[in-house]
Amino acid sequence: MTTSKEDILNQLRSQSVPPTDLPDLQSIELASQWIRYEDPAEQFAETLASVGGLCVRVKNVDEINQRLSELTAYQEASQVCSQIAGCGQPNVSIPDITDPHDFENIDFAILPGEFGVAENGAVWITNEGGPARTLYFLAQHVALLVPASDIVNNMHQAYQKLEFAENSFGTFMSGPSKTADIEQSLVIGAHGARSLTVFLVEEAF
């Protein structure tokens, strides 16, 4: 008896489907037409705002700490964790947690982002697979730190930076969690983060 896999592949192979070419997305002809912005960081901030997020441009972690203290969500947070040394005043230590369920009551999480995308306000975040991955989605409020110099124009440039060589998890996160499933009314904070603040940081952190 044949397996389902064999059956499906045989069925597909039994058909004559005329082969067609795959476009080269990095060819000059195409790549020269992908959208670019005069000031990608500015565009990123604008787009992020349009999807309900907040972009704050800062010099260094010290400045972030000051700006955090001005954020209502941060002020009101009782459980805070941070994956960036010296950033925020965490009272839950991420390395101590082995079961992601223990992050259930985190109010504010300060986490690293890899780079931003100007055209859609997304930040690429990645995680090797520890329980901290949950934080991006489970924390009530999320702040991401992204190097200010790492804003690409468009998604084509974004994928040139990505490799997927290792087993990993990665997400483009664009703004806070949202839904419009009730009569098209936009509600921010569906299941995931109620707010998303992205700090574009000039100095290394």
Binding site: G121, A122, G130, F164, N167, G170, F172, M173, G175, A180
Partner: peptide, 18 residues
């Protein structure tokens, strides 16, 4: 789909967590 520039989360799964 909705006129958003991208969905809020576009998650890439490359293998199970440990």
């Amino acid at each position: 789909a909705t006129g958003q520039p991208i969905t809020t989360y576009s998650s890439h799964f490359h293998g199970p967590a440990p």
